[in-house]
Computed example of a mutant assay.
Amino acid sequence: MTAVERDRPAASRHEPALASRRRVWDWPVRFVHWSLVASLLGAFMTNKLGVKYFAYHAFFGYAVIVLVVFRVWWGFVGPKHARFVNFVRGPKGVLRYLHATGRGWKTRHAGHNPLGALMVLLLLALLGTQAGFGLFANDEIFNTGPLAGLVSKSLSLNLTSLHRKLFYVIVAAVILHVGAVLAHWRLKGDNLVSAMITGNKPGHLVEAHEEIRSSRGVLAVALFIAISLGLATLLHFAPAADFDTAGL
């Protein structure tokens, strides 16, 4: 799944791509990726619009939770390039990748490269934690998160503070991610954005045996529905907060 071509300098990235293209990313992975982008933007905008848009802000938070939980499960049952075992590498693998990149060796990864894998894990952890904190938060005016009734008023306030501060960490991680994608495009000639839209990569970057044949769509839909119903059930039976937000 990974190749390092030491005898070919990075400049060879400008060589013409093969005419053929091969499928790498299944549609559930692409759906989660762009839905997380939309949900993060939606949560940010509805937060800036004020407390009247709290219900919409909460909706985007629920979407993030479902998407993150789905992606974690999909990392175990999805097609080959979606599975964590096929792209997450330990420290030695990351260091080898950094060494090869620093030496100008041309590296090839059908799926995520080792650094990209770390960013996937980081963003999933940050987004999931951020949305999870939001479930217990309150705006100190009118609104509370759906699970605020499960914690004390002081803990709710602490989680609200963490919910706000963690947003800036997420912004920094997103900027780093976008910068890395653009650098990868510029230095290696691998258009990761296009691949995450279409699911396909040029044939010279993906060997025939690395191409996926199915997105396992039926399994993906069933899993997505199950996670959504599970969250909806949890929220439905959660007790209401017994403290007065306006008096905090």
Score class of each variant (00 low, 15 high):
48 K>Y: 07
70 F>G: 02
104 G>F: 06
224 F>C: 08
143 N>G: 05
234 L>D: 00
241 A>S: 13
64 V>Q: 09
97 Y>F: 12
191 N>D: 07
91 P>I: 01
149 G>V: 06
70 F>Q: 00
246 A>N: 10
180 A>Q: 07
166 L>Q: 02
135 L>E: 11
183 A>D: 01
183 A>V: 08
61 G>P: 01
196 M>A: 05
130 Q>H: 15
239 P>K: 03
108 R>H: 11
118 L>P: 05
67 L>G: 05
100 A>L: 02
101 T>F: 06
96 R>I: 00
94 V>S: 04
103 R>N: 04
24 V>L: 05
103 R>K: 10
233 T>G: 15
173 A>Q: 10
200 N>K: 15
197 I>D: 05
3 A>Q: 12
26 D>C: 07
99 H>D: 14
36 L>P: 09
224 F>M: 13
131 A>I: 07
240 A>H: 15
175 I>G: 10
192 L>Y: 03
156 S>Q: 12
229 L>A: 15
237 F>Q: 09
159 L>V: 03
148 A>L: 02
82 A>P: 11
241 A>Y: 09
107 T>Y: 04
231 L>Q: 11
176 L>Y: 11
156 S>G: 04
94 V>A: 03
60 F>V: 07
173 A>D: 06
55 A>L: 13
109 H>K: 09
47 N>M: 14
142 F>M: 06
70 F>R: 13
178 V>F: 08
17 A>I: 10
32 V>G: 00
205 L>A: 04
178 V>D: 01
193 V>C: 06
14 H>M: 14
16 P>F: 00
220 A>R: 01
124 L>A: 05
12 S>M: 14
98 L>T: 01
154 S>F: 14
131 A>E: 04
47 N>C: 09
234 L>C: 02
30 R>Q: 04
55 A>Y: 08
160 T>A: 14
207 E>P: 09
216 R>Y: 08
27 W>V: 15
67 L>N: 07
181 V>I: 13
57 H>E: 12
180 A>F: 14
180 A>M: 13
133 F>K: 03
151 V>L: 08
18 L>I: 06
160 T>R: 07
144 T>H: 15
21 R>G: 01
130 Q>D: 08
71 R>N: 09
65 I>C: 10
28 P>C: 02
185 W>A: 11
37 V>P: 15
214 S>V: 09
169 V>N: 02
96 R>W: 09
14 H>G: 14
74 W>E: 03
100 A>K: 01
61 G>H: 09
191 N>V: 05
144 T>A: 14
169 V>S: 05
104 G>H: 08
